[in-house]
Every structure is written in structure tokens, then in C-alpha cells.
Design a protein around this nucleic acid. Structure first.
Lengths: 244, 244
DNA sequence: CAGTGGTCTAGACCACATG
DNA sequence: ATGTGGTCTAGACCACTGT
């Protein structure tokens, strides 16, 4: 006898357990960084064999939702925004180590987003969005220009924050102020020639190669929560992938 | 009692079995597309439990080395060079479907490769390489320029082939002529402005944005076998990734 | 039908982390 | 010493494929 919701009897038990655990994580029952019940407790609670429970957890580990720690437990993964969601642009200090640029919010607006953004975020035709224009700098030199759209409904608290009080990293702010967790993202990379507006913002020669990274960020449930487009000089840009 | 080579007693059995299977695949005992022994046969031959054998196979499936087919067997994966190793540049015909450009080998040379290529390929300071300069075209318009380096030792048969007889896809040729299998690759992407040489080869304006993809291809054993740099117009270039 | 991989069980024992 | 995840066993039964 098990206690899995019967949302689809045909699915394997480990699959249904995985879905159930993911739903409980998405619902906030276990916060990022917190431990989920032990394998023994889960086998008890759901009335399954250890191998089945392990397989469900294996899947969530492979998906990057959970992390195991031998002898300690299994934990909801806290995405590290320092690197994993910041892959495309890398900057190095003069010393050679990686550097994270600081950020400055230039402006904020409340508007209905353009059609492509509304569609990407699954927003209705008249739903309000929050727009942020941001600059990222190293040693006070602008290196990246960002356009960000958020659905107002989920991010209302951001309307009140003073522009100068926005931190360098937005995702932790989303988490603490709006209880919105970014769990994954999809990025699309293209090359442009700098138009006048971008050339001005990034102190580039007009026509210089520019990399544009368009990112759609999702929560644990797979709902898109943020649309973002980041532009930077193509110069010095580098990206690496492994293919199998 | 099992029959695993004792190359490291401390490793888990499934790990050692995985290594052993991979070694047998790399040695050519089972060609790409061929079936490996059934799970039952492997449990017998190695004297292991089914779960342990399954875990070893699971790993190789996750690594893209094997594919399972329920009711049929488990097979050595034949990489499809049509898409998986050809991710960065996408071209669309006027009709809208994806198009694979044709290829023309412009020149071939036998030389000691530059130091960075030698190092990437793990070649000695005086080891000979085969250099190929290739152009890829759509409707007879050049769209990509490729520089390719191969260790001569492994690819001797290519020295004899007439330039006009090189096929569009090199990896199947490597497999049939030189028995060199490409199993995975690492690509590094950067942006350049077109210099005169590249601008000429690709019919671009000098200074136009160019994407350079530097690829290092590996066989099943993880040995680098090919170094390649592909350049194309930044215009219309697009790349998409999912991040977790 | 026989043979394959896919799912699942009910444990035992080991390695690691912590008090 | 206790509790955690990690490894491994020796099966049973199911679902799919091809004869």
C-alpha cells in the first residue's frame, strides 16, 4: 500500500514519487537548503522499497533539484547565482581571477510588455509588467546592458524599492522580497552590431560586434517568471560546451 | 566471484563494470550500432546481481555511449552527425527547413601543427599533422570556413584521397577509412571581426562580426582525435541552452 | 511463444558525518 | 554510537519485440 496521489495510475511508482516530491518542493514545503525526509522515512511514509525511493531521488538529483550528502541527508538545492546562471559572460580582473560586475538600475517602468515578452512569460494581452533597465559595471566601466521584464502580479514588492537599493544580484532579492525562486533558465544567444543606443550605453564604437543573451527564467514548477536580455561587447566574450 | 579486471579494487563494482564495458567498446569489440550482451548474460559472465549490471549500463546510457531498446537489446550508440555535433550554426532554406551545407576541401598539407593545436591533441613537438582547409556552402554561396588538424599517425589514409573525393561529412569518413570514431566533442565559441582572409573566403565586409567555433573531438576512450576551427558570419547565428 | 529490457521488492552491509 | 546515504544482492513480475 502506498500513499501516492493517483494522478496517473499508469506511471511507474518512482516517477509518481518524483512528481510528488517535486510538487512538495515547489509548494515550499521544504525550502532551498533544507533537508527532505531520509530515505528510510520516505520508504515508510509511501510504503515503497528503498530501491524505488532511491530511483525517484536519483532523478531529482540528475535534474539538479536535490543534492545528496553522504552521512548527512538529501537537500533541496540552492542554485548558486554566482556562476551557474551566469555562464555566457565571463570577466577577469587584472589579477586573472573571475570578477562579478556590480549593477546599477537605471530606470523602472510599469507597462504592458511587448507581445513577444508577454508570450514568453505566459501573460495575458493586458497584464501589467515591471520593466527594469540595468547596467553592469567593472571598475565603474559599463560592460553589460540589461533589459528585464517581470509579471507585476508576482513581483509587486519591487515597485516600492528605491532604484539605488537594488542589490547586484536580483535572484536572491526575488526570493526574499517576492518569494519567487528561480530554478532553471533557457538562454538564447545571438550576435548583433551595436546600434547607437547600445553603443552609447556600453561605450562602444557603433557597429562593433555585440553578443545578446536572451534569458527566460523558470521556477521549480516550470512557470516562466522573468524575461531578460543582456548585451555585451563581443570582444573577449567566450563560451564553452561539451557535446555527446 | 566476478571477473572484473582489478585495476582499482576500491571502486564500486558498477563503476568497474562500466569502465570495463567502455574499454571493450573503445577497443571495437562491439561496433557502433551493434548490440552488447543482454543483461542476463552480463550478470552471468561477471557474476554480479542484475541491479549492479543495470547501474553500470545506466551510466553509459546517461553518457550517451549506449542506447536501450525495450524488448530488443542494448546497443552501442551511433552518433548522428547530422545534428548533434553541428549545433552552433543553423541554416534554413527559403522554404524554412534546416539545411546542411555542402563542403569543398580547398587544400591539404602535411606539417607540424601550431603549438596550441599540438597541445590540444596531445601530440609531441615534432609529430606530423594533416591540415585541411574546407569551405562549406549553401547554394554555392560560402557560409563557413574551416581549419582542421588531425594527427597523421591515426589518419594516414586521408593523405591519399583526392581533394574532390572528400565527402560533406568527415566523421563517417574517419570511421570507414581510418577506423577513428568520434564520440564526443568540446566546443569553444568566440566572436571576432572579420580579417581580410576570412572576409574574402566568406564574402563578408571586412570588420563584420564573425563567430568562431573551436572544436576538439574525442573518441570513446576520451582521446582527442581532431582539432577544428569553424568561422561563419555572426549574422543570423543563433544558439540555445538550458541551464539548471 | 521466447527473449529482451523495465519496474519493484526486501532486505544486508559499507562508508561517512556528527555528537 | 547512531543515523545518514552508498553499494549490492537475488530474485519476481511486467511490457514490449519479434518469430
Amino acid at each position: 500500500m502506498n500513499r501516492l496521489s493517483a494522478h496517473d495510475e499508469r506511471l511507474p511508482l518512482y516517477q509518481r514519487l518524483r512528481d510528488d516530491l517535486l510538487q512538495r518542493i515547489a509548494s515550499g514545503e521544504w525550502a532551498p537548503g533544507a533537508a527532505i525526509p531520509t530515505e528510510a522515512e520516505l520508504t515508510q511514509a509511501y510504503g515503497l522499497a528503498t530501491g524505488t525511493v532511491r530511483k525517484a531521488i536519483d532523478m531529482l538529483v540528475a535534474e539538479g533539484v536535490l543534492v545528496r550528502a553522504q552521512g548527512k541527508g538529501t537537500f533541496v538545492r540552492r542554485p548558486d547565482f554566482g556562476n551557474s546562471l551566469f555562464r555566457f559572460f565571463r570577466f577577469r580582473s587584472r589579477a586573472g581571477s573571475d570578477v562579478r560586475p556590480s549593477a546599477r538600475v537605471l530606470s523602472r517602468a510599469l507597462r504592458v510588455p511587448p507581445a513577444d515578452v508577454r508570450q514568453a512569460l505566459g501573460m495575458g494581452d493586458e497584464a501589467m509588467g515591471i520593466y527594469l533597465s540595468r547596467l553592469r559595471l567593472i571598475d565603474d566601466q559599463p560592460v553589460l546592458a540589461e533589459d528585464i521584464w517581470l509579471p507585476r502580479e508576482r513581483f509587486e514588492p519591487l515597485v516600492e524599492i528605491k532604484l539605488k537599493d537594488f542589490p547586484d544580484l536580483l535572484y536572491p532579492l526575488y526570493e526574499t522580497s517576492c518569494r519567487q525562486l528561480v530554478a532553471s533558465a533557457r538562454e538564447r544567444l545571438t550576435v548583433e552590431s551595436a546600434g547607437k543606443a547600445i553603443a552609447d550605453r556600453l561605450s562602444l564604437a557603433p557597429g562593433a560586434p555585440v553578443i545578446a543573451v536572451q534569458r527566460l527564467a523558470f521556477d521549480f514548477a516550470g512557470t516562466p517568471v522573468e524575461w531578460r536580455c543582456t548585451r555585451g561587447a563581443g570582444d573577449g566574450f567566450q563560451y564553452e560546451v561539451d557535446i555527446r
